[in-house]
Design a protein around this nucleic acid. Sequence first.
DNA 1: GTCTATAGCTGGATAGAC
DNA 2: GTCTATCCAGCTATAGAC
Lengths: 204, 204
Amino acid sequence: MKLTTLSTEERIIKAASKIFISKGYAGARMQEIADEAGINKAMLHYYYRSKDKLFRVIALASFKEIIPRIGHLIEKDLPLLEKLAAIVDTYLTTFKSNPNLPLFILNELTQQGDEFIDELKAQVAELPRFEYLFAQIQKEVEDGNIRPVLPFHLLLTTMSMTIFPFVCRPVFTGLIGVTNSQYDEIIGSRKEHIVAFLTHALKT
Amino acid sequence: MKLTTLSTEERIIKAASKIFISKGYAGARMQEIADEAGINKAMLHYYYRSKDKLFRVIALASFKEIIPRIGHLIEKDLPLLEKLAAIVDTYLTTFKSNPNLPLFILNELTQQGDEFIDELKAQVAELPRFEYLFAQIQKEVEDGNIRPVLPFHLLLTTMSMTIFPFVCRPVFTGLIGVTNSQYDEIIGSRKEHIVAFLTHALKT
DNA sequence: GTCTATAGCTGGATAGAC
DNA sequence: GTCTATCCAGCTATAGAC
């Protein structure tokens, strides 16, 4: 159990990730990142020239870690329902260990300008080719294996059911009287619900 | 077509809503709100003492407008699927005319502190009593009218399918090559998809 | 590389004339 | 009520010693 064996640079990245992902770009403060890393502000600028540069390192790294995970799943040769289940499982696993990430991504994707998006697209090796998934869905419909459904709707529905619970937690824990552990339980049993739901909804 | 017949106070509210809801509390600037309203910063402080106060007026008003809309639906005496369809329709209609609202709400509910949540709870006349909906779902399951499902999962799924598309738009329009009008079409046909999906997924 | 001190600016808030 | 001018705190960023 090594405690502070991390290099300064690693500590900065770790601290900046935590602060940026929980507070967002506009809400984050360089001072808070420095405190979290156990150094001072000057160090942040020494390693990464500006708040903006540091943010991009963090944000791009986060995005680049998520995107390929489902990217390669999509092109895999798997039966449709198994593939959807694998996508659901990947998202759930990823976000369970980083519950603030979904809101962060959605937020910065809407707030940051086009240059940011372009930089992201340029850096991500390969964006998921959803056409591949859409074609597979289309074929299943045509073969009569599943109920007719617009492929994009099915993708959107699958992603919605899986990711939205992570971003709407405060609606239930804050406003309605759901406790955090009750909510964790729901998230824990989410996969079974989603897979069962998809299975029955697609049955011919 | 009255152009500037609005009182200063109305103009401030309108401008502040626009800026706060699209940029969030941390990202909004008083100067930008003043510009949008066609006045100067001093006026903002004259009417609402601080950024914080102004924000609360806007945020609480937004929340208070949304919450009761489904609150009363939930306790209505309607068959389950019709009730779910009505909830879906209400959300879709509300957010189609204010597409930034969902992300704003989710965001501020996670960013703002407990005092904000408490103030919100105190001001909202009545929070939706989901127990009522849960009991109805439970009964339908017990009567064998729908497939067994945990009531909270069903609510979460319904809300997810309906609201998430509004917050994940930039994922598809920014990263994947979906155009905004294509995405609007999807949102336009969303209700039919969701209702059909729910119907088939719940069939015994 | 790491620190302290501080410059420089942005943005929220106020004073005071009209 | 509305404006201009200005203050001042907080934050990003840099200078310079060690």
